[in-house]
Design a protein around this nucleic acid. Structure first.
Lengths: 337, 337
DNA sequence: CTGAAAGCGCTTACAG
DNA sequence: CTGAAAGCGCTTACAG
């Protein structure tokens, strides 16, 4: 049990403790000779500056808090990995809190995060109370909502253009000749769920069509599967289902096959996200791609800028997604694809 | 930008700074009256003790470092979530590092982790050099390998009984009447890959069978798919494939279907892990379950015990898995299932 | 029970 | 360039 400190390195190198600190502080002044002596001693002792002590005095922990839930939805692990990589490249680490379900629970978790003096907070797939948003701002900690919008609390958010993406998907279905189009929506307690539903409704209305059905899938596989079964057991049944995200769409496809239907032939299914699994042959899911890399870049960009500038002015970034054609939905006639 | 400190709370409450600290330190002595005054002032100011400062003086950061890779394999996000929940319940947080591919890269990452003064390190799906293992021990930081074994470095590890599980899977296939059994193995650079392959070979030998084929799938989907295609295009083709993990098995199933074969009828496929996706109807994969919850419990148990006791004596835990019967493999005749 | 003081391991003005 | 010293926000003996 031997934690090496800068003082021990200083003694061995025959310099002051401040000299050691300077050698390990980029941009601080130290002569070549001093640096060499210090590095040698540090090497021999196995010294690394204590990040916590550094954080205390500098006021920067170089940790970003990430609150995440829904890890069974492949979108989030993929995002976590991308976020972590991008942040590590800039010298930040992720302190991860898995979120409980309740809003109070999440507030609690965010407070814990703030106690750790994180330099910023990314909340993925969860909401935050206005009260807490205000306290984070008071503490000078930028908070960014990833894949969730939340107006009015002065929080930054990065999303894809959910409404537009849903319109795109719906129009594609309409152009494909479908008329009885149902929507198994994302959780209506979330902005993504609401925005995508709004896009669906707008596109249907534009085409003069009434929704065949509209249900809240709660972003839950079992719920979506149940809804899909109910839908196709009715008569007439829908000829297409636009599903609020890929995770539910996989369940929908499983349910439809269980009913003896072949997606893309008997009924069309379109999802939202384009998680890696959507491209796997077993699902081959037509979907709207959320541009994850660009969302991650924007997130890291905004957060680090706010940290560096010490300003908490919020930003709202919406990145357009694109329709990815695969086999789960019939194509419009004459589509070159 | 107002970080509230214990001194400010003390002033408002009319007590000393030490009194404030005691009120927030479980088990420390403070009168009811003092506690009440302090809590009131803290509440009004929005005070929370600075975890970093606490960590500095107590020597306990209550952070556990997690090094993780392969997040596209659903086993790891699932493990991450379970680990995080179990740790949070005990007052620990996860500082996450996504691992680069090289061993040197991982060592670098582990050193970063140690600089953050984490109380313990969990390395999931990655290996660590002996050199670094020794340094962690010297620093008194327990290191645990999750889902990887590594003998001789004095590191704790928690795995499932990989060899035994693979024997179980292989015997099941043999009892099912298969004779031309191929193994698309897990990466042979990992203990899980080697142990499962050893189990496969042992069970085959016991039955007096020669492996139909043996290839390293590298835990990579595309590699496994390519191997599966090569295998079934040869003549005769295998009547069963035991795959080193579920993630590859999904690719194998996709590849087999692409060749016009129906898993469970034309050819049997068995995986390893039992990730949630294995139960989804699209794959319906027969597999060996890695008992994730028990692996997580053991991990948290060992790590917290080592932290509390300050001892770094390593432990090796191997938890037996169980065969989960689904539709991707033919059952033995007369099997009640 | 409570306050004054030391100290955790650093960084950063401040002099020289 | 370099050292002595202050200070980051706490916890914890030490007296009282």
């Amino acid at each position: 049990m031997n934690k090496i400190t800068s003082a021990q390195v200083a003694q061995r190198a025959g310099v002051s403790q401040s000299a050691v600190s300077r050698v390990f502080t980029p941009g601080a002044s130290a002569s070549k000779a001093t640096a060499a002596k210090v590095r040698k001693a540090a090497q021999e002792l196995g010294y690394r500056p204590n990040s916590l002590a550094r954080a205390m005095v500098s006021g920067k922990s170089r940790m970003i808090g990430l609150v995440v839930a829904y890890l069974e939805n492949q979108f989030y692990p993929t995002a976590l990995e991308a976020l972590s990589n991008a942040l590590q490249a800039r010298g930040y680490q992720l302190l991860v809190f898995t979120a409980p379900n309740s809003t109070e629970g999440i507030d609690q978790v965010v407070e814990d995060l703030m106690a750790y003096q994180v330099d910023g907070i990314i909340a993925a797939s969860v909401s935050i109370t206005s009260d807490l948003a205000g306290r984070a701002r008071a503490a000078g900690i930028p908070v960014l909502l990833f894949n969730r919008g939340q107006a009015g609390d002065g929080l930054s958010n990065v999303t894809s253009a959910n409404r537009k993406g849903a319109e795109l998907a719906t129009r594609f279905l309409i152009e494909g000749g479908h008329r009885r189009i149902a929507h198994i929506a994302g959780w209506q307690g979330s902005s993504t769920g609401r925005d995508r539903q709004a896009g669906f409704l707008a596109a249907m209305e534009d085409a003069g069509l009434a929704p065949f059905a509209l249900v809240d899938g709660m972003y839950d596989r079992a719920t979506a599967m149940g809804s899909a079964r109910d839908l196709v057991r009715s008569s007439p049944r829908p000829d297409a289902i636009f599903v609020g995200n890929d995770h539910m769409a996989f369940g929908v496809i499983d349910a439809l096959r269980g009913e003896g239907l072949v997606p893309g032939r008997d009924i069309s299914v379109v999802g939202y996200d384009d998680v890696p699994l959507a491209a796997w042959e077993a699902y081959d899911l037509t979907t709207i791609r959320q541009p994850l890399n660009r969302m991650v870049e924007a997130t890291v960009e905004i957060l680090t800028a706010q940290i560096d500038a010490g300003d908490t002015a919020h930003q709202t970034i919406e990145i357009e997604g694109e329709l990815i054609l695969r086999g789960s939905a019939r194509l419009p006639d004459g589509d070159p694809e």
